[in-house]
Design a protein around this nucleic acid. Structure first.
Lengths: 202, 202
DNA sequence: TCCATTCGTTACAGTCACTGTAAACAGTAC
DNA sequence: GTACTGTTTACAGTGACTGTAACGAATGGA
């Protein structure tokens, strides 16, 4: 079923990757605002316009983990209870973080989080991604339950589930000083407590 | 306790109001993107720079209802259970909408919502406001319960409560064609259902 | 192997939100 | 009246993002 990749497609994919990787490193080194899109373009030997042909905005250059998470959540929600689905996805995300910490360093991972948290434009981008997550949850929950995506129960469930990402982000920030493994454990515990609260009712 | 307002202060307040009102009308008439900040400035007999002295961004020019809602929610949460507090605030917001519909017209109110929903920059602004709401809820809940603002239970509660604004927005959109009074009633019902779901547990 | 089409890159010109600064110009306090 | 203070202005920038036309290189078919 999978067509062999044509040369044009490979070049495109590789350039895209190079742009994103280069930009991410530059952002981490100098800060998001201190890097101009033209800088990233020059570093990759292309025109500024080319960058915008590949990415819709400067923020989109940052290699973040949102798309995989949205996809993972959608997939899980098809056959798992909402809260469990969220906990599984976030658990995998923690695994990914710990693995990243091994590949690079925990300090690097922390700096990445810090960058997102302290850059207004990236915070906004982050919020947009969260909305995409909620929308995906609504979609999946509606499909599963046979309700319309307008159903208030579906909506509030999706919102509550997405709230766990809130807890995740803050808990991670809170426990990060304890090191990768320990932090991951604490975050898991916080998430479990939050999920229990939702299960039991407010 | 209240100092009499000096002339400078009055001028400032009035200009600010004029800028916001003028901009809002222009946005509704021509669309957000078709109005340049310089246009608003010119319409008010002032420089573009002056506009930015009063408002931090073009989006902030739009007269929205977020600040009062954030304040109202904070206040209620001090002495009311979270879900009830949210329902009361949103109920008052519906009253306000119905009153606005009487003052202007329901069509006008709908166009305002449409403007916000269809303009990406305003959607983003809206998301930022929602975060402020959540943050205010966290603050109030933590104070009330004696927990820290980092507490996962506090966080998830705040997120779930803020989720009701999600339901509100969508429910309003869904029922708007039925007219102000009827729509308000339906939205109230949807909110009550969503709140019950949270109370009972997911 | 040649040709036509397709598609990404480039050069270039432009828009517009937003910023910094210094000078002019109030209102305010004494 | 005079010094002080806060706001507006004129002006000159920055940088993200867009549209367009020309160019060149991969592609698919003859």
């Amino acid at each position: 079923m999978r067509e062999p990749e044509t040369l044009r497609e490979r070049r495109k994919r590789e350039l895209r990757q190079q742009l994103s990787d280069t930009a991410t490193v530059m952002f981490l080194e100098r800060g998001f605002d201190a890097v101009r899109v033209a800088d990233v373009a020059r570093a990759c030997g292309v025109t500024e316009k080319t960058v915008f042909n590949h990415f819709g905005s400067k923020e989109a250059l940052l290699a973040d983990r949102w798309d995989p998470q949205v996809e993972a959540l959608s997939a899980r929600l098809a056959d798992t209870a909402p809260l469990d689905a969220a906990l599984e996805v976030l658990g995998e995300e923690l695994d990914f973080l710990v693995a990243s910490a091994r590949r690079h360093s925990w300090a690097e991972v922390r700096r990445f989080g810090e960058l997102i948290r302290t850059t207004p434009a990236l915070v906004a981008h982050h919020r947009a991604a969260r909305d995409r997550l909620t929308e995906a949850a609504v979609e999946a929950l509606a499909t599963r339950s046979g309700a319309t995506p307008d159903d208030p129960i579906v909506r509030i469930t999706a919102a509550a589930v997405t709230g766990l990402w809130n807890v995740y982000a803050l808990s991670l920030q809170r426990h990060q000083a304890k090191g990768a493994a320990r932090a991951a454990r604490e975050v898991r515990a916080d998430l479990a407590r939050a999920a229990d609260a939702l299960r039991q009712g407010l």
